[in-house]
């Protein structure tokens, strides 16, 4: 094999291996990219999981119904309910809601509520200012806990949305927490 050919093999292989490494990294980069993508588009009912600040003028002319839906994973020994099933809100105004969770066991537990908003078009416009879902919640044995939610519906919410469903799935994350 001639020297120049060997040389051009080498540079080409190097380039191709760079693509391979890049694609592998891209696979992982898709994770944060997907988070961003979801929060922008509301894909997958993704809603913010960290506190944000909203400065929008309230729109008293529009009313949106916000429904709360609670699901407890069958492996989580908890009771978890919204104190009210739904409320009617004006976009741009801040509201409070409370959820109550009860540890049904005689041991300490850690739980996490995973939020999701439907329809997807509303997800980006449902902004949580303060939420128990931002952190894991620790429960003593048999403890009952009232957990606050503070939210604003962004006035930019599309015209064709009149009902927003905020769903929480309650998971027992005691084993995950103890691993860390």
């Amino acid at each position: 094999m001639s020297e120049p050919r060997k040389e051009s093999h080498r540079s080409l292989i190097f380039g191709l291996l760079t693509i391979v490494a890049g694609s592998f990294a891209f696979g992982y980069a898709l994770v944060p990219l997907y988070e961003v993508f979801c929060e922008i588009t509301g894909f997958g009912g993704r809603t913010n999981t960290e506190a944000v600040v909203v400065e929008e003028a309230p729109d008293p002319t529009r009313e949106i119904r916000v429904e709360f839906m609670t699901t407890v994973n069958s492996y989580a020994p908890f009771e978890f309910v919204a104190d009210r099933d739904s409320m009617t809100v004006n976009p741009g105004k801040m509201y409070f809601a409370t959820f109550t969770a009860t540890n049904m066991t005689e041991s300490d537990k850690v739980a996490h509520a995973v939020p999701s908003v439907a329809p997807p078009a509303a997800a980006e416009n449902f902004v949580k200012i303060e939420c128990f879902c931002f952190n894991s919640q620790e429960f003593l044995a048999s403890e009952e806990k009232a957990m606050p939610l503070q939210f604003i519906v962004d006035p930019d919410i599309p015209e064709y949305v009149d009902t927003i469903t905020l769903g929480y799935t309650f998971y027992d994350t005691t084993s995950m927490a103890s691993n860390n």
Partner: peptide
């Protein structure tokens, strides 16, 4: 029907 997500 996806765990952790609400679909409508």
């Amino acid at each position: 029907a996806v765990p952790g997500i609400v679909n409508e």
